Simulated scan of single mutants.
Amino acid sequence: MTPGDTPAVVVVDDSRFMRGLISDTLESGGVDVVGEAEDGEEAVAVVEELRPDVVTMDVNMPRVDGIEATRRIMEQVPTPILMLSAYTEDGADETFDALDAGAVDFIAKPGGEVSAAVTDLEEQLVELVHSVADADVSDRGPGEESAPEPAAEPHPETVDVEPNTTVLIGSSTGGPDAVERVVGALPGDADVRVLIVQHMPEAFTGRFADRLDESTALSVSEAEDGSRIGRGEALVACGGRHLEVSSYRDGRLRVKTVDEDRGQGVRPSVNVTFESAAETVDDPLIGVVLTGMGDDGSEGVKTLKRVGARVIAQDEDTSVVYGMPKRAAATGCVDEILPLGEIAGGVVGGIADV
């Protein structure tokens, strides 16, 4: 797509009412709906024929469900796919399966079911469709991106890890896979503690933390008010609440969760976590801004830089959406812009320099 073009979208849902509602919602936001499908089997054929810029995909459908349809589309004609996911624990599991199959992002259905309330999501849905329309998904087929990156060599050279280093990671669209690859490549025996802020609804962040815990060397959990972490441990910010560092002593962090807007537009916000860490932690800090829509994190990296932290941003070529890392780099406070596969090595290689 050329910047400014109208994205062409195929809407997939087994409910005729919902297909019409989603199509009307997108078209009222200036998106061109070029086709519809009522199940996953039909979706694969329609996408193959029409070659849209984006597909919106329901999960539970007859014959072929949304997860299998996503897998087939990514194998045959890779296309950015947005899942419409139930706002439940089961819906979270299905959503992560769809992301593993190659979907780039998801939107949670209000109340666990799509209803007329989907019109309330118009701004978010339309913005997301525009953002992912240009995403390079050629390498997001099943088995391509779902596994963590093998342990990376430190960048630019092997160094000893500085004691008591805190790594702060912020991401949004395309972030679950990117976070898993970065965290999965961090050495489990390093003296680091990690805070992760991924834009994600509350029903999904706990499952995201569980997946990271299962697939990485670090001990990962969802943050609760008053949670503490030390060496080799990580926390994932809970959806719907900001994550603040409330205290730091002898290499252990304590956090609090904040159910306030804070004027950020998203909750949890990368800015809030980065800024609170900069104000509270007096040992080495490394900030990492990964793929995502918008500019969250750009103010936070300024605060980190003022206290001497090292800051890394993901590069454009490997970002699903080059929004957050681009805005962070534009501040002039980013030390390195690296491909996704080199970021863990950049973190380890930069630890002794902070």
Rank of each mutant, 00 (worst) to 15 (best):
V12C: 06
T318M: 09
P52D: 12
G308D: 03
E153H: 00
G206E: 13
K305I: 02
T119S: 15
V114A: 14
L253F: 04
E41M: 13
G349P: 03
L50F: 04
V34T: 13
P268L: 13
D191F: 13
A217P: 03
K302S: 10
E27I: 12
A277I: 04
V347A: 03
R252P: 05
D317W: 00
A203T: 15
F204V: 08
A309M: 06
S146Y: 05
A344D: 10
P268I: 13
G111A: 15
S138I: 04
T166Q: 05
E299F: 08
V161C: 13
L50V: 01
M74Y: 00
A203G: 09
G188H: 01
D13I: 02
R207L: 09
A45S: 14
V77L: 09
V129C: 07
E342V: 12
A133V: 05
G263W: 00
G239Q: 11
D24H: 12
D315I: 11
M61W: 04
I229K: 01
V44L: 08
V272E: 06
S246I: 10
D177V: 15
A237C: 10
D120M: 12
V54T: 02
K305N: 14
G206F: 03
D295V: 02
G350P: 09
G174Y: 04
S172R: 02
V354D: 02
Q198S: 10
E27R: 15
K305Q: 10
G226M: 10
L253W: 01
G251F: 02
S171V: 14
G91D: 06
V59A: 05
E202P: 03
D53C: 08
T205K: 02
A309L: 07
V34F: 08
L290A: 02
R267V: 13
G287S: 11
A152T: 08
P78W: 07
E244Q: 14
A278V: 08
V301K: 00
S298F: 03
I107G: 05
L304V: 03
D13A: 07
V47T: 06
T173N: 07
G251L: 01
L195S: 05
A209N: 06
